[in-house]
């Protein structure tokens, strides 16, 4: 919901519709184009100023996007250079800002609609790295990101619903909430990926409807800037890892690689210590003991004892 719309929050739905009709004469035709118009009408009847954007965000598959402020969109400076990237730039912008009143055929409208979505995505990539945009995305990333925040876990399902961008599929990351990101800032180069701040790796979105969103609508920098601005949201890194075992015995090739990686990790820690930096690993002492532990006992995860 944009701030501008809160003033009319109490208006009945019909009144809002009237106003919208006044502002957007071609609403009737628009509603033919928007498949999800009915859903939209029933859900958000408080705000008419961000009509198109509300529809866009609430439509299926666009759950990753946040709403761009009206002021940000109308400031031409923020849109510098986009006119060369988007077809029918002016019409698309009009549609996004709900001042579209161009009478044209359905094919054309389809084109403009597509351009509007593209434009919104490109502006979105710029918006989410602003102070306001970051704050909005942080609110959407669930509470678990806050270090030391009380774990309010009503049920597994509730938590699942809260994580707007999904949770890390890696078992050792303990359902760390993910953030959307792109592998390139240029449009149409690769679809959106999800970044886990715990294992610092990229994952594919689970749902195919998210896999078609362009990664450039989120950009390569957003998630890194977010943690620069909100360093207390960085999750502690975990040293726990999976150890492949056969009948309780470690698999040599994997174990040798793991030992080599542990050496690299210790080198990193030494470098950080040299630079007087916190390494940010959790339960370090415990983990170090575990490394030296050469026999079959491990902690709950890798101590996969064969019991029969």
């Amino acid at each position: 919901m944009s701030d501008a719309g809160q003033g009319v929050a109490a208006s009945p739905r019909d009144q809002v519709r009237e106003k919208v009709r006044e502002l957007v004469p071609s609403l009737e035709r628009l509603s033919l184009t928007y498949g999800a118009m009915d859903d939209f009408n029933s859900e958000t009847d408080s705000d008419y100023t961000s009509y198109w954007r509300d529809w866009f965000i609430s439509s299926r598959g666009n759950e990753y996007f946040c709403e761009i402020d009206e002021e940000y969109l109308t400031d031409r400076f923020n849109l510098t250079g986009l006119n060369t990237e988007v077809q029918y730039y002016q019409y698309a912008l009009d549609l996004v800002t709900d001042v579209f009143d161009f009478d044209c055929d359905d094919d054309m409208r389809e084109q403009i609609e597509k351009s509007a979505r593209h434009l919104y995505g490109l502006v979105h990539a710029r918006y989410i790295v602003t102070t306001r945009g970051l704050a909005k995305m942080v609110c959407r990333a669930p509470h678990k990101l806050h270090r030391g925040a009380p774990a309010d876990v009503p049920s597994q399902l509730e938590k699942f619903k809260k994580s707007d961008f999904g949770k890390c599929p890696r078992v050792m990351c303990d359902s760390q909430p993910l953030l959307p990101m792109g592998q390139a800032d240029i449009a149409n180069s690769s679809p959106v990926k999800l970044y886990c701040a715990r294992c610092e790796d990229l994952y594919n979105p689970k749902s195919s409807r998210h896999a078609i969103i362009d990664g450039a609508y989120f950009g390569t920098s957003f998630h890194n800037i977010l943690f620069q601005v909100y360093p207390n949201m960085l999750p502690p890194k975990t040293q726990r890892r999976y150890e492949p075992r056969v009948f309780g015995f470690k698999v040599h090739s994997a174990a040798a690689l793991a030992r080599w990686q542990a050496d690299e990790r210790e080198k990193l820690k030494d470098r950080l210590r040299g630079a007087r930096m916190e390494s940010g690993f959790e339960e370090e002492e415990e983990a170090e003991e575990e490394e030296e532990d050469e026999d079959m006992e491990g902690d709950g995860f890798d101590g996969a004892a064969v019991q029969q």
Partner: peptide
């Protein structure tokens, strides 16, 4: 502080 720590 937010730099990479998990490359290993």
């Amino acid at each position: 502080k937010s730099g990479p720590r998990m490359k290993w």
